[in-house]
């Protein structure tokens, strides 16, 4: 008897708990789980004190910071690309109101690889000679036991929950990502709980798939779930809406924007 992983949105929202590290899939303004984040923030009781893990953080991440739900960020870029700075993050960071775990592309990539491999760190050459190590005193250097060279031991990175928006998913949690893989498969392998929101849900996807359902916890049918970010090739990013979001933030109306959608 096949088990279905399809669940209502309300069930998935309940899996995000206070003090967790929550990872978001996609990239900056592309295939982001905006619909899920908006629903999370529209609840009567919001989760508190979340740490955000994402490769490049964009609009929905900015909402999470602006509402105070996320108090710590872990990413290598937080902005709205050609649309400019992320207004709520920039203000919070400039006022010292948020804890930033500074990352780079390699430190995130190596940290995920370490976690997937079940080891505490992954060495690399990145950061050597820069001042990244001074703002990340938890990251250690070490001597390569074979060559004697100094390398950086990038610590393993995991998360409690990963939320990934996909084009299609099936009952087993297999999914299609649409050609912009980002770090979504890796997130699905390091997260304790994996939530997919999907434009379309089918009984069974034909091969090949992009993301295996073996570690997926639940699939939520959420059409337009990436809007106003893109879901290539189904829909492009909605630039006017992104500008409307920025204007709402600058006017001090973030909560109204979230409530009214």
């Amino acid at each position: 008897m096949p088990v279905t992983k399809i669940i209502p949105l309300s069930t998935a929202l309940g899996w995000v708990q206070d003090d967790q590290t929550v990872a978001l899939g996609g990239m900056t303004l592309y295939r982001r789980p905006v619909g899920f984040v908006r629903a999370l923030l529209q609840q009567k009781t919001r989760p508190q004190n979340l740490t955000l893990l994402t490769f490049t953080a964009g609009l929905e991440s900015d909402m999470l910071v602006g509402t105070g739900v996320v108090t710590c960020t872990r990413t290598c870029y937080f902005g709205l690309e050609i649309f400019g700075l992320a207004p709520m993050f920039t203000a919070a960071a400039s006022n010292g109101q948020i804890n930033i775990i500074e990352e780079s592309e390699f430190s995130l990539a190596a940290g995920l690889r370490a976690k997937m491999g079940g080891v505490g760190f992954m060495p690399g050459r990145a950061w050597l000679g820069t001042e990244m190590l001074t703002i990340r005193p938890d990251v250690k250097t070490m001597t390569d036991p074979y060559t004697g060279e100094t390398v950086v031991a990038f610590p393993a990175i995991g998360c409690d929950v990963a939320v990934i928006h996909v084009l299609k998913a099936d009952k087993q949690g297999n999914a299609i990502l649409g050609g912009n893989p980002t770090i979504d498969v890796e997130l699905s392998l390091v997260a304790q709980t994996v939530i997919l929101t999907a434009e379309e849900v089918v009984d069974k996807l034909p091969s090949p798939i992009d993301l295996p359902g073996l570690t997926v916890s639940g699939v939520v049918h959420l059409p337009q779930g990436a809007w106003p970010t893109s879901c290539y090739p189904l829909y492009p990013l909605d630039g006017e809406e992104i500008l409307r979001y920025i204007a709402a933030c600058h006017a001090g109306e973030l909560e109204t924007y979230i409530k009214d959608g």
Binding site: T56, T75, C76, Y77, F78, G79, L85, A86, E102, E103, S104, E105, F106, S107, G124, A126, W127, T130, M132
Partner: peptide, 9 residues
């Protein structure tokens, strides 16, 4: 600013 991306690497 937004962050270092891959620059520090």
């Amino acid at each position: 600013l937004p962050g270092s991306g891959g620059i520090a690497d």
